[in-house]
Amino acid sequence: MNQVGRPEPPPTGPVKFVAKNMRLDLRLIAEMIEPGSRVLDIGSGDGSLIETLSRTRGCDARGIEIDMAEVTRSVAHGLPVMHGDADHDLAEYPDGAFDVVVLSRTLQAVERPREVLRQMLRIGSRAILSFPNFGHWLVRWQLLSTGRMPMTSVWSRPWYETPNIHPCTIRDFMALCDQDGYAIEQWLAVDDAGQRSPWRRFPGLANVFGEQALFRLRRA
């Protein structure tokens, strides 16, 4: 379900407890989750986040994944993963079934992002999301200078076949949270080198230099 392909950045900075070869945003997400939490990872991919959470943090972590080969691999690896997707399968869960619901690098590819977000915060007390920032300077520059849809290492597929049908910027996302009444508990942006950005208090700068954004929300 991780439609935005991107080469693995080398692990940088201190990694407290999570697997070293895990994708950076997943490591950052794992650090945001309390031990022992009930977690649903939507778009669990190869299952590395739920494996880390259940084996090292004592979490009851489960996954939903759209790619059947990944589902089979995960279940065969002993991880509780079901075939399904964000748009159609969240509505079934009861309110508050999870402490944390995770959606990494997938928001931009779902059919109804706003509804998915609403469902996430209905079935979970907290939602953690990561997404590629469409407000990044390179994206802006390419559109401005060439007049064509940007093609970067993050936005790497041409417009006519990209699964990323709902790109948004960090500011767009913050506006939606404000509009729908979600409190942002924590957020950060990661720059091209995979480093956490230093612009914690300046969303405008983060929206220019952050390649990926990571948010932890709760119902306000």
């Binding site: 009851d60 489960r62 059947m68 509780p80 993963v81 009861p94």
Partner: peptide, 8 residues
């Protein structure tokens, strides 16, 4: 809210 894996 059961713990369920599902594979086709």
């Amino acid at each position: 809210a059961a713990n369920v894996s599902f594979v086709e």
